[in-house]
């Protein structure tokens, strides 16, 4: 069951399509047709929080919030 406190977003204005987030968590993140990151599951389960933190920190442009 999704945790309502985890709400994943990618700021498309600053995302640069490095796809690092996809490498960390391909269940939550993907690459859109525009080559930029897209959120596949915007309200994931709590067990995803650690990987979300890693993805958000690793993103070179810090485009991810959750």
């Amino acid at each position: 069951m999704a945790d309502p406190e985890l709400h994943v977003k990618i700021n498309s204005l600053i995302c640069e399509g490095t796809a690092y987030c996809v490498r960390i968590n391909p269940d939550v993140f993907g690459i859109g047709t525009d080559g930029l990151g897209e959120v596949l599951v915007d309200r994931p389960a709590p067990e995803f929080e650690d990987s979300l933190e890693e993805a958000a920190t690793l993103c070179p442009t810090r485009a991810i919030t959750y």
């Binding site: 640069e16 490095t18 690092y20 070179p60 442009t61 810090r62």
Partner: peptide
């Protein structure tokens, strides 16, 4: 910019 964006920017 890109993957080489400075890791210490923040």
């Amino acid at each position: 910019g890109g993957e080489h964006t400075c890791i210490g920017r923040t």
